[in-house]
Design a protein around this nucleic acid. Structure first.
Lengths: 160, 160
DNA sequence: TTACCTGCAAATGGTTTGCATCCCA
DNA sequence: TGGGATGCAAACCATTTGCAGGTAA
């Protein structure tokens, strides 16, 4: 990307994401403040869901309580999605509506989480499995999450 | 099942599970106490992963700290598996080695979690997806968890 | 007779909340 | 200029840990 080194946004998708976020907040009489905008921007730039402390280390200058509050508010309006991975840490990412449908790779050693997009035929198989589960279980299945658990390249002794 | 109404075990699988648990503990110089045995029995009898308070309500007479300690110890020797569902509650179940490979249905309203077994062809598709992810991502994928999220019959307004 | 196990109570740590202040629509 | 937003510090709550008995091998 040839974008500016500064904090200016890359126009295309990011602007759209900001527009959606602002609209969603306006809908409930809330404001798209600079802190919230920075948060959304940060979540967009990352390659996978981030923990609170990763967000703070990543340059967020909001207080911890504001981070939690804003993430909760953005989650309520469907802009942010909360993820709890096997290592028990809570992470946040943009909602699939904004980031596209995907799944996660989780490192069982360091807790790192990366996004993973499945091929269409696997997604189709999952959708059919969801239908079948709806029919046989009494649950009305609305979504599915797949987590592939393993060891990332940094933690894999075989790779080193 | 025509087993006794009392607390006597059903011989078949449960005995095997107790045997495995006892052996695993012995391997690390630990004891299969009555509290641990009761815990394993309780986890076996339930239809899905249970929370600490469900275990306590379900008749466990161990102290809370012993419950946590024993679940951690049993997890370390591969008898118990910890699950964190979307609603943030930590749950425990017998490991897949003892309960068989399965996935979970989660009610996004009440947090209830039920076991779900997928058809072989879906499992095959997932295994292939895991292979592909291993090849393309740098992660060495060792396991996968699928969570179907929806509304259980008790919480579904359409069903009522 | 040494370990291991248990229960109680205190400590921990991530997350939430109360409150006073700040600030934008 | 009023209602939301923020920061700080205190509160909360699930989980962990220290310690002083118990208990089994």
């Amino acid at each position: 990307m040839a974008a500016s080194e500064l904090d200016l946004e890359e126009p295309a998708e990011v602007d759209h994401i900001h527009d959606v976020a602002a609209a969603r907040l306006r809908g409930t009489r809330q404001r798209y403040t600079s802190g919230r905008r920075a948060l959304v921007r940060q979540l967009h730039d990352l390659h996978g869901p981030a923990t609170i402390s990763e967000l703070q280390d990543g340059g967020s200058d909001s207080s911890t309580s504001s981070l939690y509050r804003n993430l909760a508010i953005l989650e309520q309006c469907g802009v942010v999605h909360r993820v709890v991975a096997v290592d028990d840490t809570t992470r946040y990412e943009l909602s699939e509506e904004l980031s596209g449908h995907h799944h996660h790779l989780v490192c069982r050693n360091c807790g790192r989480v990366a996004d993973l997009t499945l091929s269409d035929d696997v997604e189709l198989a999952l959708a059919r499995a969801a239908d079948q589960a709806s029919r046989t279980s009494g649950f009305r299945v609305a979504a599915h999450n797949l987590e592939m658990v393993g060891t990332c390249e940094d933690c894999d002794p075989e790779t080193a």
